[in-house]
């Protein structure tokens, strides 16, 4: 019997994101990045406001217009693609009065894709080079694995909000470079646009501003990058291509 996956019915949402996020509990403050609630006596020396536990806003994977919604039997034009799992760096949520927000992904038993890809990449790297030279190798020499790069990509795209861009800016791909500090934080002042295509200079400026915000915001607490490979990511070039976002 063929497996038929039940496609979740798309409901219109003011937010469109690559991964559908379940409706947050109504009393959870809406914010961008999933955060754990701060425990009152943890890190006591740090002055920190009591943060509300936040969940990412409910999102659909594409814009559903009223017209499309009203098509009774219409299946979604595209189904949400499965995403590789971002590496999480947050601490487990502390006990809270409010029920924890539904996690964005199912906590089902899973193959650690990142680890698999890590291993594969390492293997390929090893296969591509001479084996048994006796060199123990320095960790910084290893390229980032596909899984590590993917985790970075997913982390940045969570903050790449193109929702307030002009139609022209949405048609413009920008190439942005950023210098990183060793703790995984981007140096905001180093972020530069090194190229653009598809739109004019003004559109590129707006597209760049959105890209810069994404890098800074989602990197505020440091991207989850392997310190051992810092040499590989001390400088990063990110291409922001909104083609998929334009027709959503």
């Amino acid at each position: 019997m063929p497996e038929i996956a039940e496609t979740p019915r798309l409901r219109p949402s003011p937010r469109v994101a690559p991964e559908p996020v379940a409706r947050p509990d109504p009393d959870v403050q809406v914010d961008d990045v999933d955060r754990a609630e701060t425990a009152p006596d943890e890190r006591a020396e740090e002055v920190e406001e009591d943060r509300q536990e936040t969940a990412r806003e409910e999102a659909a994977t594409e814009i559903v217009t009223e017209a499309e919604r009203s098509e009774e039997a219409a299946a979604p034009a595209r189904s949400p693609r499965p995403r590789s799992r971002p590496a999480r760096r947050e601490a487990p949520a502390q006990t809270a009065e409010a029920p924890a927000p539904k996690p964005a992904e199912e906590a089902a038993p899973r193959v650690d894709d990142a680890a698999v890809e890590n291993a594969i990449a390492a293997a390929l790297g090893a296969a591509g080079a001479a084996v048994g030279t006796g060199d123990t190798g320095t960790p910084s020499g290893l390229p980032l694995t596909a899984g590590e790069k993917d985790a970075l990509r997913v982390a940045v795209q969570r903050c790449w909000n193109v929702g307030s861009l002009s139609t022209n800016a949405l048609g413009t791909t920008v190439v942005v470079t950023v210098s990183m500090s060793e703790d995984g934080r981007p140096d905001a002042a180093s972020i530069r646009m090194t190229g653009y295509s598809g739109g004019g200079a003004e559109a590129a400026d707006h597209a760049f501003a959105a890209a810069r915000r994404a890098i800074i915001r989602c990197g505020a607490e440091g991207y989850d990058l392997p310190v051992a490979k810092y040499d590989r990511w001390r400088s990063i070039e990110m291409t922001f291509n909104p083609e998929n976002m334009r027709i959503k």
């Binding site: 990509r153 795209q157 790449w160 193109v162 307030s164 291409t239 922001f240 909104p242 998929n244």
Partner: peptide
């Protein structure tokens, strides 16, 4: 530099 391409983002206010 390390090169990555971002093709998916969010659309929100």
């Amino acid at each position: 530099p390390l090169r990555i391409e971002i093709t998916e983002g969010v659309i929100e206010p």
